[in-house]
Write a protein that binds this DNA or RNA. Structure first.
Lengths: 230, 230
DNA sequence: TTCATAATTCGATCTTAGCCGAACCGTCCA
DNA sequence: TGGACGGTTCGGCTAAGATCGAATTATGAA
């Protein structure tokens, strides 16, 4: 009768360490193979297979077969959002003080969230765009101004292509470490992709953490007036 | 090493039916006694006691002793947000079609979220305030305009008192059924409280669902130009 | 003081579900 | 066609934890 049982079902699904590892491994929006996920989950392939079946069956993951590989990814942004919300609880309610690790530091500085920029980097870029009146918040979205339209096209971003996608164009996404909104949606993804193309950012290791290159720091400073401190 | 295990811990906590019932029972922001929660959870008082201990120990619930009663409530809005995010997953990823029940309908129309208005009602009121330039979105918050300041004071809302509170003043809160933001924070709570005082809304049953009185419908129409359809 | 009620602790039971070994299906490549 | 590899299915083991009965502590009321 209540909603309780329903959320318990999905929460229990996320509540297994192996499955939680799978979900967090997919938080960068990429699609990974079952074997890769098995490694990331820290359990055997057979066990992983069972977990993946449950996750897809319940609609948390989407799967696509390519040859003898099966690629799994988060089914919807809502899944990523729920995982983010749970992450917020792990830091926001500290049972006792836990000194931040090096990886913690790195991932707070710059990371991907689903498929766009997050962390200090994502928030800084978003706020710089706001400062320069390139975008403005409208409800749960951002609107791109005329100024922003020109600016982003100059940067080499195909706004029309981003607009044609079926997903939300420019959404506000809440950051679990900064607890401030950053740019998500098709535009956020396009911006991140362009950053990769230009060599400003690159993936550090196999996680969500990002490395900002020297060229990236320079561009950040020149274009946005942002100095990202380690 | 990963964040996986951390979120698994908290997700598993929410993933038990009894505990999920407890959390959803507290979603309206009220504080309930252990016995009441035992009833809502559908398990014996002993079992409930164990669950409540775990939930408070892990920082999801806060507890306050009053005489021989112990009142439990959600520790932070972040907890409510996580539960909301999980609710979104239960509806947003339908494994198969589930016909909406009557209670579903009611709770989608008008309910409380933590301590402010949500559902169609909450979203409609918020958007009416936006239309009339009473509030405007700023980042993850709303800002009250001069127009809005006058309007809300006219309504009998003590804005100064709301501003003095330690919590966020006017936050954007995402709705799981409407998937659009509505007014939360101290101002959202004050608005809801005023609605109760004026007899426009009242609690329906013991859940989060709200009943909108005839006077409420009239006020909604007169003040906001909103006609809430069942 | 005495009794009732709120809430917790302890101990025992029992179900659930994660896990891996082994075997099995399908695709790719030589 | 045979072998290698990605992925899944099956079966049995094991451990974790949810549950309640009974007893215990603490508060409030008579």
């Amino acid at each position: 009768m209540n909603a309780g049982p329903h959320i318990a079902e999905v929460a229990a699904l996320i509540g297994d360490p192996a499955r939680a590892n799978i979900l967090t491994a997919l938080m960068d929006g990429r699609a990974l193979t079952a074997t890769e996920l098995s490694y990331r989950a820290g359990v055997s392939p057979q066990t992983t297979s069972g977990h993946l079946a449950k996750l897809t069956e319940s609609g948390l993951l989407a799967v696509e077969s390519q040859g003898r590989h099966r690629y799994f990814r988060l089914a919807t942004p809502a899944v990523a959002q729920a995982v983010e919300a749970l992450m917020m609880l792990t830091t926001h309610t500290p049972p006792r003080y836990r000194p931040p690790s090096r990886e913690d530091q790195a991932i707070r500085l710059a990371r991907t969230c689903y498929d766009h920029l997050a962390g200090k980097l994502g928030v800084a870029v978003t706020e710089a765009l706001l400062d320069r009146a390139c975008i403005e918040p409208v409800g749960r979205d951002y609107r791109v101004t005329a100024t922003g339209d020109a600016f982003l096209r100059d940067l080499g971003i195909d706004l029309d292509k981003a607009k044609r996608q079926r997903r939300a164009f420019a959404r506000q996404c809440l950051d679990w470490s900064e607890r401030r909104p950053h740019l998500a949606g098709a535009l956020g993804a396009a911006l991140a992709t362009r950053g990769f193309e230009l060599g400003w950012i690159s993936r550090a290791g196999d996680g969500r953490a990002l490395q900002v290159s020297a060229a990236g720091h320079k561009a950040l400073n020149d274009l946005f007036g942002v100095a990202l401190s380690g």
